[in-house]
Design a binder for these strands. Structure first.
Lengths: 231, 231
DNA sequence: CGCCATGTTAGGTAATCGTTAACTACGAAA
DNA sequence: TTTCGTAGTTAACGATTACCTAACATGGCG
């Protein structure tokens, strides 16, 4: 999940959208909005929100149909959907839930309840998240699952060759610690691989080229290290 | 999850327990019951139910306290909790949700609504461990029922052989993640099948031929992956 | 200046991958 | 039964890429 969870609000009444956006943003959520079902499905596919608040009565495509379509999308399959409607009859509520919604709230809505319910749903889905196998350090994100490195500001993924990635990953897991070339050969290349130690230099060069110059420092006469994040 | 999901019902009024047990069992759920919070926590720890229906007002330990204790247990962390109470005031509802409940229903309860809500909660949690029958990703539609893949624009169904399909399906359910050939053999072919790892190459080739070249990427020195839809 | 450690570049080589073709196994059709 | 087609696997070989090395450049320091 993002630092600030993204909520998709779907309602054809602008007043309600405004009210919800204002209050949810005050609670530190990011929001996007759609004013009918068709627009909602498109936006949801594009943005993969962390939660969807969906009104039922809408023009073009109603909330039930939108809910069904979203549930067919693999990327939206696990996104909690909160249905919101003026119709409080039991039958509607049952249909809404059976269509794939997780929760059904009836208007008039209480903002504190809605907000608590949104938080509960987020809590519920975050319980299943498996942490990604990645190191965040400085403005870098070194992702072992995807074998890429991202720079914070741009977010663009940089592809490294295998040895480059392994070497950077090794350094970044031990920031500040200095390793001799022989240490690195032993621990990244492997104990029984015999290559000249200057090989390390070349790989450091390539990492600096692709990721940035200042992450790996040269310690003259000793070796290299990832810059110390505590200084 | 079990074939018949297990529901833990917690309420100090026997009439309500009986009513719920009768109706939930009719819907093919297994049920167990506790009549106060302390008993509920013990039973929940012992049995790890698939869902917990929890009344708030109870002797010995109320539902809020029980909810908090359950959430502290690692095995109960992901079990959905549905709170049930006579007090319909907003403030109570907010407290209940903030304590760790996923849903709050007020008495008098409607059985159809409760049942739909229980099913929605189960669906919600099963979404995380059961793969979808239909994956939509990029312009692909990967249909597990029909064992075919459709490309968005043309809509034409491409028929894949079983291994080809299974492999593509495995990749597409984990976009962006890199797998070594051995990972793929273990997880798509099966742990105790011994074939040379270059077999994967040939199947990847066939998928690229039939479905398109750019869906599965080669990560040299590491393996393959479905292209990352987030980049 | 001259020395030494590191930076930088380029090219050969070894590893890895793509691609094709052949072999086996199996089931369906003739 | 034979024959054919499809699926799965393996092997072989050419193409591509990563890796390593060596050679030269640079820069700090005595």
């Amino acid at each position: 999940m993002r630092e600030r969870p993204l909520i998709l609000l779907v309602d054809d009444e602008e007043d309600i959208i405004d009210l919800l956006q204002y209050n949810l943003q005050k609670e530190n959520f990011d929001t996007i909005a759609a004013k009918d079902g068709a627009e909602a499905v498109d936006l949801a596919v594009q943005e993969t929100p962390d939660i969807i608040v969906l009104d039922i009565m809408m023009p073009r495509m109603d909330g039930l149909e939108a809910c069904k379509r979203m549930r067919e999308h693999s990327t939206l399959r696990t996104v909690p959907i909160l249905m919101l409607t003026a119709r409080s009859e039991e039958a509607d509520q049952v249909v809404g839930l059976d269509t794939g919604a997780d929760i059904y709230l009836t208007k008039p809505i209480s903002l504190p309840v809605l907000i608590s319910q949104v938080k509960a749903l987020l809590r519920g889905s975050s319980r299943y998240d498996t942490p990604a196998d990645l190191i965040r350090i400085l403005d870098l994100e070194i992702d072992r699952d995807r074998y890429v490195v991202r720079r914070g500001n741009s977010g663009k993924a940089v592809r490294l060759a295998r040895k480059e990635f392994d070497l950077l990953y090794f350094f970044a897991s031990r920031p500040g610690k200095v390793f001799s070339r022989q240490d690195l050969l032993d621990r990244v290349w492997g104990r029984d691989v015999y290559v000249v130690d200057r090989t390390v230099d070349v790989h450091v060069r390539k990492i600096r080229e692709k990721v940035g110059e200042h992450y790996i420092e040269t310690i003259k006469g000793v070796g290299y290290r990832f810059i110390d994040t505590f200084q």
